Computed example of a mutant assay.
Amino acid sequence: MSQDAFHTHRNLLFSLAHDILGSAGDAEDVVQETWVRWHGVDRDRVDNPRACLVRIVTRLALDERDRLHHEYTGPWLPEPASGPARDPAEDVARAQTIAYGLMVVLETLSPLERAAFILHEAFGFPHTEIARILDRSPAAVRQLTHRARAHVQARRPRFGTQRAAAQAAAERFLDAALGGSIPHLMEVLAPDVTLRTDGGGRTRAALRPVTGSDRVSRLRARVAPVDAEVTVRWSTEDGPPTAAVFADGRPYAVLVAVVGEDGNRVSEVYGILNPDKLTRLTV
């Protein structure tokens, strides 16, 4: 058995752990623990090192995800990554990448649905192999990936006209939110809109999802930056419209706006406000 199997697949392991956890630092910890576990494996009994390593890192990442979410204050949303100061493992080209907006959307899935979707859609693992990784039947894995795919497709603008309409609605929402205009926010929010904010106990944010256009508009108007020069950078990635917001040149928030089927109103909003998760953002 090659002693280099771990290093051969290290970038895959990091990317997989990162997509499950949504945090580069925690993903790196899981990869290091995978290295320790790999050294305890009887390699003469392993006929597929890659599959074995993926099984180890996936299960460790799911366990770590459960621990992190249990200990976290309020909703957990993935950590955005941008700018030059990134972990070297993040700079390795991947066959496919889950756009940040879609990673945020995946947070509303169960951990197993999220893992199955990532393994199948982003990394191309077949259902039979995912079944062994997750210790589930192939039929159960197909159900997991089907539910996850339907959830994502309902929130991803897939055609040029859909993307343009969604972007326009998201920009109207952000302009109203940053302007603190409750009437304008009400116009662009769906009546049953849901807002999830990740403040991590470090800044003002709702500790539970907020539902309803009236409640969401009032909360967004209260947390908009005041007396600051605001800069907005929109993402060009696939997925729901995503904006990085800077106040006086400093990272303030990342907002993901999911637009409803009518293409005119925002039905879901995700806001990352925890300053510890915004340190890698650059204007």
Rank of each mutant, 00 (worst) to 15 (best):
G201T: 03
R163I: 10
V245M: 10
S217N: 04
T73F: 05
V230M: 01
V57P: 06
C52W: 08
G40D: 06
F6P: 01
D276H: 06
V254C: 14
T197H: 01
L195V: 00
A61Y: 09
N274A: 12
G271Y: 00
R202S: 13
R156A: 15
P183K: 09
L13H: 03
D227W: 15
R220M: 13
D4A: 12
A228K: 10
A168C: 12
L68S: 11
Q143F: 00
V141Q: 11
G180R: 03
F123E: 13
R222H: 11
R132G: 15
V266E: 03
D63E: 15
L62H: 03
V226F: 07
L189S: 03
V46I: 11
P183V: 07
L102D: 08
L106M: 11
P191S: 08
H39A: 05
L144E: 11
D29N: 10
Y270T: 00
Q167S: 15
F123M: 12
T282N: 13
R55Q: 12
A131M: 05
A221C: 11
L119W: 03
A116I: 07
E129T: 15
R37C: 04
P209Q: 08
V46M: 11
R86A: 09
A190Y: 01
A122S: 08
I118V: 13
T161A: 13
F117P: 07
R202P: 10
E113D: 09
V259K: 00
R94I: 08
D175M: 11
M103S: 12
P157K: 06
W35E: 15
E187A: 14
L255Q: 06
I20K: 10
V92C: 12
H127M: 12
L144A: 07
L219V: 02
V105S: 07
I130W: 00
R250V: 15
A27P: 04
E237W: 05
L207K: 02
V266L: 05
F246D: 15
R265A: 03
R196I: 01
R218Y: 01
N48M: 08
A169F: 01
R163Q: 13
F246V: 14
T34N: 12
T197V: 06
G200D: 03
